[in-house]
Design a binder for these strands. Structure first.
Lengths: 396, 396
DNA sequence: CGCTCTTTGTCCTGCGAGTGGAAGAAGTCT
DNA sequence: AGACTTCTTCCACTCGCAGGACAAAGAGCG
């Protein structure tokens, strides 16, 4: 199949495409109810979309008491590639134009191996997905990297945990390889977009999405749009000071949130606890695997290990302190907690909530839900697909 | 003169009005260069604005090498009232439609005396300004109050330092009294709008405006628009914890920024220092006035008083810690420091800068100016005028 | 099975906004 | 005085689009 290259010609078409993306197949009449256009105008624009091939007819809808309407939907052959590069693993997924995941692969991979190695991996995963017949090619790709990005150019800038990537033309390179448009963003922003599109943050205009993985970051959504800051580093909350004169951090300061609570910090604390004999559970696991991760801590905590519960609670409290400050400042309508560490579940959430509700003003917390993300590891790739679809479904 | 009641009929007219407000008198040709409309269309819209009386002819412009063009400008008889209610004083100013201050009054007044007393004062100040012949009436008024506001309704909500105001229909009441449209906002947001319109923040899309007065607040501007949060309490940073287990605060927590540094905290610290004999300078002033304020501390510091310099530096450091966190989170293009305490000047600014540059990541601080506001006490009233003009110069 | 009512889709006409050319008005410069 | 610029108005023509009329397709009912 030839890949689609068409773009909407005007704002009306863009609007219609997004409605079809978010609402699935729709009749002309239903579309008409949502867009405030005259029937004639609507018909013209839909016809033009049909001509481009972005939209196809999709049979008849059920009758609503009169003549049945002809459904239209986004071309079911459209394919987006969503790539979520984490610090220690890579997710690649294929979606249709409605951003439903058709296939999803996950591979452990250290981002510090550099862009060339990572790209090789990503491309081979994409090829594998394509080989299953899910896609013959891609109409667009979104990709998230664990660090700040100069968004318009799609280039990482001064990423602390992925030094080899600074200035690497991710967008350009991937676009070349895949032969389709590509957009690049911070992984945390993509998670926020994912939860906004298909998760807990549907219909919330202003919210924060805190991702606790190897590091800690925060996606900021203002008025339904991701806010990236002046240089693309907005939401970089891992190096906010959580403990005065606390632990030394890789960034050169002391007491950074990330140094006290994150996947990396938790693993280190767990090993320490195991070695000091504070937690038999962890000691057993350390013996077995030779290393510990947040998963081990979660399992031990679930088994009732007091040390692990304390670790989680303390981390949650630290995180809660920082979030409390951000809530006072930003007054969001929702706070989503996500990332690898969410396996720690409700112990963590409870600690965070306690701290936020205690430290922020009632007006800001009064009706503020603090919840775990709904999509887990798929949030990032869905967000990536959403990113590129937003781009492609905007007037050129 | 009959007050203007017209509003722009469409987005083009709104655009033109804002250009005339921000750029002063302009020829049709110059306007044409800025708005991407055909000459004919432009002429039609300008004519309509002339008909409404919002815009008037203003003589001939200088020649640019050919026929001289006819200037147009906003009606010079338009008057806006800007009101800035602080915790301990009230500012009232009259501006023309270009937001130039024609008259400005300031009166000490405790906001806790309640809305009725404050309104009486504000109205009498407005009457006094009118009596000087500056205005025969007002076409709109903007008003800022020192606490959170439910913006669409113009009603203060749960304001900590002005308890009697909770739910008081400020917008409604003032609109009745003045007989013109009124908009209400947080005083800090108005300061941000003021600095954006006529101060240091011109041409910056994303910035923070930290106001240190009796309390501490922060105006947030995203993409050129003030961000107010879900419940209108965004920017309420005075109760972010700056010192773990620090001083008790009126809000019930401990260690709030406001409890450690603000006009009120500084006054208290100064009195304490004077009484303990740590600062002869302050002791003299306390003797003379029976009380101390930030002004006394500033004067003593300027005279080289070590205790006062320490007070300022410590406060700046605390503030800088909080701002550093916000900078990491928000990645602004500019941070403006304003409010009554800015009399402390560069000692304060230096302390804040040191702390921010030390604690935030280089990517966020790399090109981040941290500066004092340019407008001083007029920022609020200019912002207030800007608020109402933005409202009136938008399609109805 | 035929009739009526409802919903959907298409066609068509008329209105009105807006573009861009052309001419006229007003100035500058040589 | 004449040539060239710049600004403004006028006007004819185009094009988008709203909204009514009509046709198509189905549901419900007797």
């Amino acid at each position: 199949m030839r890949r689609m290259t068409a773009r909407p010609a005007n704002a009306h078409q863009a609007r219609l495409l997004k409605l079809l993306r978010d609402g699935g197949p729709n009749s002309r009449a239903q579309l008409g109810d949502q867009v405030d256009l005259s029937r004639s105008k609507l018909a013209v624009e839909v016809d033009r979309l049909l001509e481009t091939g972005l939209v196809v007819a999709d049979g008849l809808a059920a009758s609503r008491g009169g003549r049945r309407s002809h459904n239209v939907r986004l071309n079911p052959q459209l394919r987006f590639l969503g790539v979520d590069i984490g610090a220690t693993s890579v997710d690649v997924a294929v979606t249709n134009a409605e951003l439903e995941i058709l296939g999803h692969l996950n591979q452990p991979l250290d981002v510090r191996e550099g862009p060339v190695a990572v790209f090789e991996q990503v491309l081979s995963m994409a090829a594998k997905l394509r080989a299953t017949g899910l896609a013959e090619g891609f109409d667009g790709a979104g990709i998230g990297v664990p660090g700040p990005v100069r968004f318009p150019e799609g280039v990482p800038v001064a990423p602390p945990i992925m030094p080899g990537w600074d200035g690497f033309p991710v967008r350009e390179a991937l676009s070349q390889e895949l032969g389709c448009p590509v957009m690049v963003d911070n992984d945390v922003n993509l998670m926020a977009m994912g939860e906004q599109h298909a998760g807990v943050a549907r219909s919330v205009a202003d919210f924060l999405c805190v991702k606790i993985g190897t590091g800690i970051g925060c996606g900021i959504v203002v008025g339904g749009h991701v806010y990236r800051g002046t240089t693309g580093s907005a939401g970089d909350i891992g190096h906010i000071q959580a403990v005065p004169d606390g632990r030394p951090c890789a960034c050169g300061n002391r007491g950074c949130l990330e140094a006290h609570f994150s996947g990396a910090a938790l693993a280190r604390d767990a090993v320490e606890a195991a070695q000091q004999g504070l937690s038999p559970e962890l000691a057993v696991r350390l013996e077995a695997h030779g290393a510990l991760t947040a998963v081990d801590v979660a399992a031990a905590a679930a088994a009732g290990d007091a040390t692990c519960l304390d670790l989680i609670r303390e981390g949650g409290t630290r995180t809660g302190q920082v979030i409390a400050a951000l809530v006072s400042f930003f007054n969001p309508g929702l706070v989503v907690i996500g990332g690898g560490v969410t396996g720690l579940g409700h112990t963590l959430l409870a600690a965070i909530r306690t701290q936020v509700y205690r430290q922020s003003l009632p007006l800001a917390t009064g009706n503020l839900p603090i919840v775990l993300g709904e999509l887990g590891p798929t949030a990032g790739v869905i967000g990536a697909a959403r990113l590129i679809s937003d781009h492609l479904f905007s007037p050129a």
